[in-house]
Nucleic acid binder design. Structure first.
Lengths: 262, 262
DNA sequence: CCTTTCAGTTAGTTA
DNA sequence: TAACTAAGTGAAAGG
């Protein structure tokens, strides 16, 4: 259902190509007051001082100032911003005595200041956009654990969880520890991605830790959407087991839980 | 020195307000082929599937596709992108049977796919920009020395500084002189830049000066953010050691000192 | 190519 | 508010 968000009010408040510094500064000041989103593409240098300090020499970048007062400076390559400021900044915009456009964003706690000097602005755009779209990350490993605890049959019929995320020894945390239908103890290692060598070895470490301390047969079970081909022999050799469970199945269980809560 | 990077070739290859989907798709395809940077502001929804999976319902966002094939989807608020893809993606751009603009970015290793569907494009811009500006995170050598004196464990566990910047002989000043956990004397040479031959030879001079005048084993240690590859053999041959310490780590210690003082 | 470690990490949760 | 932990962590360095 493609609900167009345009809704009468124009998202494009301003688009200026190669504006003068005077034009730019007044446009930006107005936008920041109204908490609109400001996008600047131009040649700039950046000074940062706070937890660390940095300088970025002249070059072409994107500056994005968001509605909540967060700041991002992006170079033409790279996933990460080269400089940034988290939300809640206070801004100062002016033309310097060198006729450069200066955007200063200050954050308190910790006190951090970022100064962006534009030599040339190629593109300046102000956007009055909002975004109510819901974001959902479908299944995390924690989600999987919750799903298993709510529905232990996912692991296997008549499986009873006894503890989870319990520190049993010194090799970390066991995802789920329980008893199967025959009274055997079971250590369950959960992975939301195809289980690889590290998952098998982790489970083996848990097994070694626990084995001497229990008086019942002990099983080791990896639960994941898939088992990487290359670790199958290792799994068998160590006498461990694998149970495939789809993320979708987990998601459905979590959804039903959510419904119950409501 | 404001070196304008405009340099004759226009950074603004294309700026289109409210383009049709047909216009948009051909513009974007052309830009991606040439590894230009593409900026889209519009109403979109996003599906991601890979290590996790997520959905983002319709709303107004920025899409930035960079020259190295990285992808960022930014909402009007928040420091972090709501969806993304690291550099090296392969792209597919098309108009769907629902007349939506679809940008698909695929990453291998791990296999991850992000699909962005635009319902409406408010602004589409293609930028042929490069950025050679140097980026530097700063901590001075004096700062480093202060950090080590305040936190000798930076050098190594149970290291005790005895003197610093002390003229010990005639070959200059030893940065830090101290004792290790086993009672050996240690000469520490600090560099805030990757340590090269001159640093190693300097340390060697100090070693020669001191060696005859102490009745304990003597170690020589270079502390720097990095050791230049080519001097590694020399370092080993002279029986000297190297300990990497990041400037950021030093800066953090200095900051905590500053806070304590206040 | 894999593992380990660091980050101006950021962000969320809990005591 | 501080401490702790996870992240689709990403990125760099070393083996």
């Amino acid at each position: 259902m493609s609900m167009n968000n345009f809704q009468g009010n124009a998202p494009l408040i301003s688009v200026q190509k190669n504006p003068s510094m005077t034009e730019a500064v007044s446009t930006i000041q107005g936008a920041l007051c109204k908490h609109d989103v400001v996008l600047i593409v131009g040649c700039c240098k950046v000074d940062y001082d706070g937890r660390a300090s940095s300088t970025l020499d002249w070059g072409n970048r994107f500056l994005l100032v968001k509605a909540d007062g967060s700041v991002l400076v992006h170079r033409p390559t790279g996933y990460e911003p080269v400089n940034w400021q988290p939300s809640g900044c206070i801004f100062q915009v002016e033309i310097t005595d060198k006729s450069e456009l200066r955007v200063k964003a200050t954050r308190k706690q910790p006190r951090e200041v970022i100064n962006i000097f534009f030599d040339k602005v190629y593109l300046l755009s102000v956007l009055g956009i909002t975004d109510e779209g819901e974001f959902a990350l479908h299944v995390s490993e924690l989600d999987m654990k919750k799903a298993f605890l709510a529905n232990p049959a996912l692991v296997e019929e008549d499986f009873k969880p006894l503890s989870y995320e319990k520190n049993w020894g010194e090799s970390g945390f066991i995802d789920i520890f329980g008893v199967d239908s025959k009274g055997n103890f079971v250590i369950v290692e959960i992975k939301r991605v195809p289980a690889g060598k590290e998952a098998v070895l982790q489970l083996e470490r848990y097994m070694r830790e626990v084995k001497g301390n229990v008086n019942r047969p002990l099983r080791g079970l990896i639960v994941a959407p898939a088992l990487r081909r290359d670790v199958q022999p290792l799994l068998v050799r160590l006498g461990l087991e694998y149970k495939p469970v789809s993320l979708k199945r987990c998601f459905e269980i979590l959804r039903s839980l959510r419904v119950k809560k409501i």
